[in-house]
Design a protein around this nucleic acid. Structure first.
Lengths: 167, 167
DNA sequence: AAAAAATAGTTACCTATTATAACTATGTCT
DNA sequence: AGACATAGTTATAATAGGTAACTATTTTTT
């Protein structure tokens, strides 16, 4: 830490010309986390648009699909499966229940837990949503070939499947 | 749409046995958005841990790296480059400035805009952070080979680089 | 040159997401 | 019975992020 410290030289005019709006050749482009976030934002944006009509958000969609796959799943199961916290599940299921898409059924054997089921409406909706989500994914990744899309999915799964701790 | 379909049959005991905590063979596993989110959460978790020591968050890191690459970048440039909103940039730069990592320099030619520069401290820090981020990415993707990691990065860039609208 | 429009940054505010802690009800173990 | 564990809930807070409106400048128009 030397005494002289005129790093940027505040005298100079800072921005002589416009900077490129698309940053290329930058260290940031090499960061996996950055690429993941950007790609995720894009895919989610498409998803939001696709779901807007039904006012369904990502977490609700995930919940619906899991409940469909495992009718009677408990809230703690759901929390664990989706890696979200129990309080989050409560409001999630509240929302679905209020809209008549799912319902809690108190478990007879362990009256602490609730099994969650889709209503008929919920089942119909989730079928529709799955199609929309599929389509949304395709649109968001138009720049990929089918093989590349498959590859990407495989690689992503490989990343998050190896949960070594915490999550 | 037949009339009889007693969907969940609320009489039954909902959860007879435990559900698998890792959901396999589920529709969700085929969703790109879901895989992206899960992978991103994992990578970001590692990033957070790596940066905890320096109390730097993802957006701050990105900003520092861009400022390093483009000294004198304006706030609007930064907003556009990182696809964030101008007000977000304000608080971001405020934080960096308060910590003595960056500073605003009013542009002489256009006194509305500020060029942003790293201080000497900021330059030293960003060098250190880049190493930590690199290491963090590697740790978060231990399950990938170097080739796969490269592939993943390429695919992700291909996804988010084709910004057809909005972002 | 004066008025109008545009731009960079800022401030205030509002919403959604997510995490934490504490509480109730029920079940299990000794 | 008593201690402990578990499922769900409530309340609360931290945070990200986004919109709208304001100030200070610059550019454009007349």
């Amino acid at each position: 830490m030397t005494t002289s410290k005129k790093t940027p030289s505040p005298e100079q005019t800072p921005l002589e010309e416009a900077y490129p709006t698309t940053v290329t050749g930058l260290v940031l482009e090499e960061r996996l986390g950055y690429a993941l976030r950007r790609a995720q934002l894009k895919v989610f944006k498409h998803f939001d648009e696709a779901m807007r009509e039904h006012d369904i958000r990502p977490a609700q969609f995930s919940s619906l699909v899991v409940i469909e796959g495992y009718p009677g799943v408990t809230q703690s199961n759901l929390a664990q499966t989706l890696s979200i916290d129990p309080p989050r599940v409560v409001s999630l299921i509240n929302g679905l229940e209020e809209r008549g898409l799912a319902l809690r059924v108190r478990c007879k054997r362990d009256r602490r837990s609730h099994g969650i089921f889709l209503t008929k409406t919920g089942e119909a909706l989730v079928e529709r949503l799955k199609g929309l989500a599929e389509q949304s994914d395709l649109e968001a990744t138009q720049s990929l070939s089918e093989i590349e899309r498959r590859q990407l999915l495989t690689l992503l799964r490989k990343v998050y499947a190896s949960e070594e701790g915490g999550d």
